Measured scan of single mutants.
Amino acid sequence: MISLIAALAVDRVIGMENAMPWNLPADLAWFKRNTLNKPVIMGRHTWESIGRPLPGRKNIILSSQPGTDDRVTWVKSVDEAIAACGDVPEIMVIGGGRVYEQFLPKAQKLYLTHIDAEVEGDTHFPDYEPDDWESVFSEFHDADAQNSHSYCFEILERR
């Protein structure tokens, strides 16, 4: 099963200049909980913004210009990325925008964090048809001392 995991502000903004323009430790914990011990696929820009392999996960970098870091697996196509994951129950696609666009048609599940923030962004989550998805989990949280904005975790499964 292919799943996408993303944090989205208003207007589906997911990033600005290779960074997330908010401070939500709870979302980072949600991300870790849902990706640990699963292969993660990301684009080169996302890889560069993280700066290191995510521990406890097979890191697969999709790029037309593969790098030389041998701590991760470099691939040039969506099919190659899927094959590099091996026989696993769930593959997690973690961004960025172009990689989400490439995998959305193949995805069966979306793990979304909806952030109540209007922020400037240069990267967006692809538009998706809500009628194609069923919400199977939703959990709202107010902003607090650690988390700069209110947010809602949601899991959607393709109908």
Rank of each mutant, 00 (worst) to 15 (best):
32 K>F: 03
61 I>S: 02
159 R>F: 13
49 S>W: 01
122 D>M: 01
40 V>I: 09
64 S>W: 06
65 Q>H: 10
31 F>M: 04
24 L>G: 15
134 E>H: 10
63 S>H: 04
120 E>N: 14
49 S>H: 07
32 K>S: 05
33 R>I: 12
136 V>H: 07
4 L>N: 05
44 R>G: 14
124 H>W: 02
65 Q>N: 05
23 N>H: 07
122 D>L: 00
119 V>N: 15
120 E>P: 02
130 P>H: 14
30 W>N: 14
3 S>V: 00
29 A>V: 02
28 L>T: 00
111 Y>S: 00
75 V>D: 04
3 S>I: 03
151 Y>T: 13
11 D>C: 03
11 D>F: 00
26 A>Y: 09
68 T>R: 06
20 M>N: 01
13 V>I: 08
151 Y>E: 03
145 A>W: 08
78 V>F: 10
153 F>H: 04
80 E>M: 06
73 T>S: 09
64 S>I: 11
4 L>V: 02
120 E>M: 13
53 P>C: 04
30 W>H: 15
159 R>A: 10
102 Q>K: 08
84 A>Y: 11
9 A>P: 01
142 D>C: 07
112 L>E: 00
8 L>E: 08
127 D>F: 14
144 D>A: 05
89 P>I: 05
148 S>M: 00
132 D>K: 12
97 G>V: 00
36 L>H: 06
141 H>L: 06
15 G>L: 01
144 D>M: 04
97 G>Y: 01
74 W>Y: 12
36 L>G: 09
76 K>M: 08
40 V>K: 00
19 A>G: 12
72 V>F: 14
71 R>K: 06
29 A>E: 07
30 W>S: 15
82 I>Q: 07
23 N>R: 06
19 A>Y: 14
77 S>G: 05
21 P>A: 04
58 K>E: 05
23 N>S: 04
13 V>D: 01
84 A>L: 08
29 A>F: 03
16 M>F: 01
42 M>H: 12
124 H>A: 13
28 L>G: 01
132 D>N: 12
83 A>W: 12
103 F>N: 04
59 N>L: 03
21 P>Y: 01
85 C>D: 05
62 L>Y: 02
24 L>S: 03
89 P>C: 13
4 L>S: 03
40 V>W: 00
80 E>W: 04
120 E>R: 15
